[in-house]
Amino acid sequence: MTGRFDLFAATRWVPWLFTGLVLFFLAAPLFVVVPAAFNNSSLLQFPPRAWSLRWFHQYFDNPSWIEATLMSVKVGICVSLLATLLGLASAVGLARYRLFGRNLLRALVMAPLLVPVIVIAVGLYELFLRLGINGSFAAIVIGHTLVTFPYATVVIGAALAEIDPRLENAAVGLGARRPRAFLEVTLPLIRPGLVVAALFGFLISFDEVVLAIFLTSPATMTLPRRLWDGIRFELNPTIAAVSTMLIVLSTVVMLLSEVLRRVLARRSGLPAGQGR
């Protein structure tokens, strides 16, 4: 057998190379943006020639950046709560009731994921213009809720699918009315899913720029919108500094959601793999 060319062994590195290239491609912007944030020059320069934290100072000293950040936090919290509630309602409805036209309903709930955000943005702009709420706090919250609640539905739906629907029936048999059985049994069991849905709702809203461009006004300017304006009008490394902080925040929230999910799953007596 020696001397024979083993194609399998010879090409074993190919998938690794491919994976490596994809990962590099995904991460490449980080390698540019993060060093640029610590740049001393007032131009967006790569690679940086001297290091400094001035662009971070710039961010903290400029009220327009801070206001935009606080606005994003406020919007994010509202969106997170609304989307989780709506996602819970639609997930329960789709999973537990044999509704007429259930598949059509499911498709409708998922539609915002398929329609390009720019189309939703234009549509909402038009609609809100007629309602006279363009540029208001409600407008951006509604817009963000629309695109995040399908995710919440999916995440909570997956959590619901993991638990035995007979548990709720057992609670009813033991004397609980249906709503009480839901609150006492089903809700605690899908809590990890609810937490993940809420964190993702916040994150998506905190990160969203297209809807923000259409639906915010100077009074409701969110952080991504402020970044966008920064790129268009002033283009200095503050943008890179803010982006770096956003990357850190996203990473922290993602890790937090995974940790919370595990802790909650353990506390609700499910094996670690369950309760997503």
Partner: peptide
Amino acid sequence: NIGMVYQSYALFPH
């Protein structure tokens, strides 16, 4: 007010 025991036990895991 009827007690019921299931094959799957149906204990509340949390």
